[in-house]
Design a binder for these strands. Structure first.
Length: 790
DNA sequence: GAGCAACGTGTTTTT
DNA sequence: CACGTTGCTC
């Protein structure tokens, strides 16, 4: 069977496992997605399942799309109408189909994170709560955290006054959302969980329907998602969970790795298949990853191997400054490109976004095209959110979040005072802002009336228009385009608004083929008759001509409502320009799931990676280690790791020790491009054996990882020249008229007095290794550090 | 109601 | 440093 060709034994075992609960521990680069999609295809092809009876859940739209694409390549079936999508997408679909049972209006709007925060702030203001004592962001975390744990306000235990108040505010917020007919992201999950839990006919219907539930990235599930799956599987479905506990890097946002062990106990009962053969990386890279991750105490246990040979060692570089680190990376990338490598096969990874700037600067100056991932995404841009707010108001004028956003944007004489009055009146009426418009007195009141008429007028004028025409009309009639045209830097915003029209057209053409949405899976909303229809196993014509999930538009009444859902659930790509071959810059988190020929992992410093906020707790440190594991396993052939003695952070120069993770990697897999210095005590012996390496196993003491420095210490790239060097580096280097030599005593403004142990490089790259009396051995950029000869 | 200066606050991110 | 938010003034 061609479907199963070229699968290795464990892969084959996983794909062809007879339907039952199973846990697949899939290491990085072990063919996880392939196994998942081939399994689905195999189930269908062998008649063990119908497309209709499969449910596949992912975390990102991208992963869902990937799964669909691969599926359709394997089987000549129409994947449209299949329930393949993200947790949120599928919950949205469920809630639209059963909106009445779920207690939501059919056109409920989805609040993204920013909308939610705005909504919380509005609630706090209305309730007259001191937002210094109850910070909106903290409340947001509190609410989402509890929702993700499956807890409504009434379920939260509060043992102190503060928490009790937070619970009250949580409740108030939910009341407000309910009144406005909106749902935040975690609400989508909790609400659909509650729907299934409380409504037996609906639950049993879906339990009967879905015989096979497949879950991707299982290590990223949170408590509620786990319970949601458990509920759906309660009718005897076989759950096939694929994940990698070593790649669990989202605990900070509620993911519970423990779900994997829990699943093994509760469901799989020992049916665990490990995929350990890695098809991506060379041996040294895998050895390094394996050695590192073994320092974590809580693991299910798994070791990657490859038959591709050791390959190149990992190149380790210590820089004197972040600029120098960036410069080094840039030079290496130039030579990689010179060797004929594609820029897009090269990635630069960092722990936090702020680190990208220096690297960008170096690449930009050198004229190396690059692309930064992360940052603002299309549907999150201010101008886009404004336009969407108008569209939302046309759909539902009671959407207070949208109302607050654009009532006075562009400026139309509705000030904060007026809006406050309106909010007070609305609260008295226990209604929406819109419902209070007529009662606001004075000039502000008439401005509000004019605004609500504008919305009505837009709704009227766009009747019968196509979706993209509606959007086009709205960005003009709202005054947004005119407003941004008048702004100094508004040209890009106007372009984005035009792009929104295109996005609407594209959405409509993709969603265009669908009709009669509510009958999609044989369920007519609010009616058990429809459920019974489906239970009789009637052929469902819509499955053949259904929609491309995860767009999920088929359960949504109007094209506009569908588009708004789409905008909230799929925030879109963050890169405006595609196409050009460019070096890829992103955080390690963003790199998960990707792979590159050559990878640079930067900023391997205590306090940065591992991040200082994570070091104190064991669990935090282990997550950082998994993050490092993810970073390493992105590389196919070549891997660089770099760190820097000094780094500008938050406007201050900071001094970091090199990351403890470096000491956890096997010496034989690493090649130090700069001398590997140990702590002061180790250097003597290292010097004596003339090998610039200590054994690395005795990590430097990690007491106080960071020094802050008030007066910024700035060196300068003065004229510095290197002198004749043997393979041991130059004998002496001159900087600004002073000649530095090995063995010489020097003084440093910060580190005190010391002795030069070695010199490397020349020119602006010249580095000096100094053993200081007090702070141990440091490698400094000669051009940067102000050293005085003694 | 708009504009500007002072202040403070800085992980990781998808939906 | 670079951003957003707040608070003050015209």
């Amino acid at each position: 069977m061609s479907l199963l060709a070229n699968l290795n034994p464990p892969q084959l075992a996983a794909v062809t496992l007879e339907p039952r609960h199973a846990l697949v521990l899939a290491g990085a680069g072990s063919g996880k997605t392939r196994v998942l999609t081939t399994r689905m295809a195999w189930l269908i092809q062998t008649g063990r399942a119908t497309p209709h009876s499969l449910l596949a859940v992912t975390f990102t739209n991208k992963a869902a799309r990937e799964m669909l694409t691969r599926m359709s390549a394997m089987l000549p079936i129409n994947t449209r109408g299949m329930w393949i999508g993200t947790f949120h997408g599928l919950c949205n679909r469920l809630l639209r189909a059963h909106h009445r049972d779920a207690g939501l209006p059919q056109t409920f709007q989805i609040l993204d994170t920013a909308d939610q925060l705005a909504s919380i702030k509005r609630m706090l203001k209305a309730a007259n709560v001191d937002d210094e004592k109850y910070p909106p962001k903290q409340l947001q975390q509190f609410i989402n955290g509890n929702k993700e744990a499956g807890l409504r306000a009434g379920d939260v235990e509060a043992h102190d006054a503060f928490t009790r108040r937070m619970v009250e505010l949580y409740d108030l917020y939910d009341t407000q959302c309910q009144r406005e007919g909106v749902a935040d992201f975690s609400e989508l999950l909790l609400r659909s969980y509650e729907l299934l839990a409380r409504n037996a006919p609906i639950r049993e219907h879906y339990q009967r329907r879905f015989r096979h539930i497949l879950v991707d990235e299982f290590q990223d599930t949170n408590t509620l998602q786990y319970r949601w799956l458990k509920l759906l599987a309660g009718g005897g479905a076989a759950v096939f969970a694929v994940g990698d506990d070593d790649q669990s890097i989202y605990a900070f946002r509620g993911a519970n790795v423990g779900n994997m062990a829990e699943f093994e106990h509760e469901f799989a009962h020992g049916a665990v298949i490990k995929l350990e053969q890695n098809y991506r990386s060379h041996g040294h890279i895998l050895d390094t990853a394996n050695a590192l991750i073994q320092n974590n105490g809580t693991r299910l246990g798994k070791n990657l191997w490859t038959d591709q040979g050791h390959g190149e060692p990992i190149r380790v570089y210590e820089a004197g400054s972040d600029n120098q680190e960036a410069h080094f990376i840039m030079e290496e990338i130039r030579s990689l490109i010179g060797e004929g490598r594609l820029r897009s096969d090269i990635a630069i990874l960092y722990r936090s976004n702020a680190q990208s700037r220096v690297v960008e600067h170096a690449l930009f100056s050198a004229g190396v095209p690059y692309k930064v991932y992360g940052g603002l995404r299309f549907f999150e841009r201010q101008e886009i959110k404004h336009a969407l707010a108008y569209l939302r108001l046309m759909e539902n004028p009671h959407d207070d979040t949208a109302w607050m956003r654009v009532a006075n944007f562009p400026v139309r004489g509705i000030g904060a005072r007026t809006l406050e009055q309106q909010a007070d009146l609305a609260r008295e009426l226990n209604g929406s802002l819109y419902s209070a418009v007529a009662r606001v007195p004075g000039r502000g009141g008439s401005a509000l009336v004019r605004f609500s008429m504008l919305i009505d007028q837009m709704r009227f004028d766009t009747q019968g228009m196509q979706l993209h025409e509606v959007v086009e009309h709205v960005i003009e009639a709202s005054g947004l385009v005119t407003h941004y045209q008048g702004e100094r830097e508004g040209a890009e915003r106007v372009e984005n608004l035009r792009e929104l029209v295109n996005a609407a057209a594209a959405f409509a053409s993709e969603a265009g083929h669908m009709r009669d949405p509510d009958r999609q899976d044989g369920v007519i909303e609010g009616s058990t008759v429809g459920i019974n229809d489906a239970d009789q196993g009637l052929p469902d014509p819509e499955d053949e001509a259904g929609a491309l999930v995860p767009d999920l538009a088929q359960d949504i009444p109007s094209p506009l409502a569908g588009f708004l859902s789409h905008a909230a659930l799929e925030a879109g790509d963050n890169q405006a320009s595609a196409g050009q071959d460019a070096v890829q810059l992103m955080t390690v988190h963003a790199a998960k799931g990707l792979e590159f020929d050559a990878v640079f992992i930067t900023g391997l410093e205590e306090g940065l990676f591992p991040h200082e906020n994570s070091i104190l707790e064991q669990s935090g440190l282990e997550e950082e280690r998994r993050l490092m594991y993810v970073a390493i396993t992105r590389a196919r052939q070549r891997l660089y790791m770099s760190f820097s003695q000094t780094r500008m952070l938050h406007g201050q120069t900071r001094y970091h020790m090199r990351s403890r993770f470096l000491a956890e990697m096997p010496d034989e897999a690493l090649k130090w491009l700069t001398p590997k210095a140990g702590r002061a005590a180790d250097v003597g012996s290292a010097w004596a054996t003339s090998a610039w390496r200590d054994d690395g196993k005795s990590a430097p003491e990690q007491v106080g990882t960071t020094w802050h420095n008030r007066s910024r210490e700035q060196g300068y790239f003065g004229s510095s020249q290197g002198y004749s060097s043997s393979r041991n580096g130059p004998v002496g280097v001159e900087v600004g008229g002073t000649m530095f030599k090995v063995g010489q005593s020097v003084a440093h403004a910060r580190f005190g007095e010391g002795v030069i142990l070695a010199l490397t490089g020349s020119g602006t790259d010249a580095q000096v290794q100094v053993r200081f009396a007090d702070v141990g051995t440091k490698t400094l950029a000669l051009a940067m550090a102000k050293l005085t000869a003694l």
